[in-house]
Design a protein around this nucleic acid. Structure first.
Lengths: 223, 223
DNA sequence: TGTACATCAGTGAACGCGCGTTCACTGATGTAC
DNA sequence: TGTACATCAGTGAACGCGCGTTCACTGATGTAC
């Protein structure tokens, strides 16, 4: 990413543009080459094949979403914890609505036969980590959890990972972790439901509905 | 569905089987014909084309999921409202895990250029209606909602539709509707997150995590 | 300042593939008289 | 019981298409002496 040759940059830009028109499955190396103005085989000088293009689109996609969300969150006054929480929800949906195919690439059906490589994992956690950071900054609410042992163990394991991710875990308990992950799941569940058409006929106003959910979860977390 | 010619049934069976192997985008009419043991053009006697096969798979998919969930829910004693709620959650996930590609066809990225036809709408509501029926059967909990006006209006519109769907709406208020739709969104959000790999590294035990969410939402609804 | 050579970006043709859909047809099965 | 005809399921060839990837190549640019 840092020092990509201009040709690679151009290819990825065009690929992302075309992704916005046709969806991941139909994204074709030949069509990208055509728009870049080059013969298909020329791309092999810069990328090992079609799959590498998808990998790069996924990685940079998570990063673009993560940046958009972090930037939106950063504009809210630090002490306005609830406002920051709402901002993450709103910004995530706004990015998804603005880039529906890119969103689908990240959070829709995985591309067939495609296994997410290691390098895409870290960028993929940026949104949930932002949520976690906000929850951790809030005055401790007395969350009552009734999780089963397996879930508790998973939550404990998550807490153990937090310091390595740059998050102070002192004030974080399993109840907080579970609440944040549940909120995160609901956030992307609601966006996917809206974008994929499942709320048509019930919650027809996606933006307002997502705001409602943001407030409802903030209430529950005591933000 | 009721009186389909055997050839159509065979085609759909094979199509569903192949869907389980390759995913919706790669599902091919030629390959279906091959397995059915017939030349590709023969299928045109029974179906107008590839798109019609997808439509049928979607419609019957919603029905298969709906039936599985309703059957599981029906085995629980009527007065065990919480048990029925949990059963819906568990059965939905079980079906999704058992038929991941079919699930992805219904709840993953919509097939490119494919518009869900009218006939798929009713079957698609079976799971959420089951949830709604359970919530409506429960003793009224005092849910406190703080939704904005637009969301309230959408919720009211949903309530107005309920009688036509065979659901007694007398005891149902906006707070209940919003709670059910939120639960429904969370249910499918969690399943999609699990199946599409987003919970890897945090909630590694999908079954237990989903049970936890089922209980958490049941708590919130006062079931 | 000029020549010989190496590097390297991009070309062009070809590979083998599978796809959805069309169309005129064959040949078996069923019906009418 | 036998013949003439209609129905209909499925065939086979062809259409035009775009795909990912390979490979030997050209021709411009840069480097060394």
């Amino acid at each position: 990413m840092s020092t990509e040759p201009p040709m690679v940059k151009a290819v990825l830009e065009v690929a992302r543009r075309q992704l916005g028109e046709v969806g991941p499955a139909a994204l074709s190396l030949r069509s990208i080459a055509r728009e870049v103005g080059v013969v298909p085989s020329a791309l092999y000088r810069y990328l090992p094949g079609r799959e590498a293009i998808l990998t790069e689109l996924i990685r940079t996609g998570y990063d673009r979403l993560g940046s958009a969300v972090e930037e939106a969150e950063a504009t809210i006054a630090r002490q306005d914890v609830r406002g920051r929480w709402i901002a993450v929800w709103t910004a995530t949906r706004a990015w998804a609505v603005a880039h529906p195919h890119e969103y689908a690439l990240l959070y829709g059906t995985p591309v067939a036969g495609y296994q997410a490589p290691q390098q895409t994992i870290a960028p993929a956690t940026r949104v949930v980590l932002t949520l976690a950071r906000i929850a951790a900054a809030a005055p401790v609410a007395s969350l009552h959890g009734t999780a089963n042992a397996t879930v508790l163990a998973d939550a404990e394991a998550v807490i153990a990972q937090l310091p390595a991710l740059g998050l102070d875990a002192d004030r974080v308990g399993v109840a907080e972790v579970l609440a944040v992950i549940e909120s995160w799941t609901l956030l992307f569940g609601a966006i996917s439901f809206e974008l994929f058409g499942h709320l048509r006929g019930s919650m027809n106003h996606g933006e307002e509905y997502l705001e409602h959910l943001a407030h409802a979860t903030a209430d529950r977390l005591g933000l």
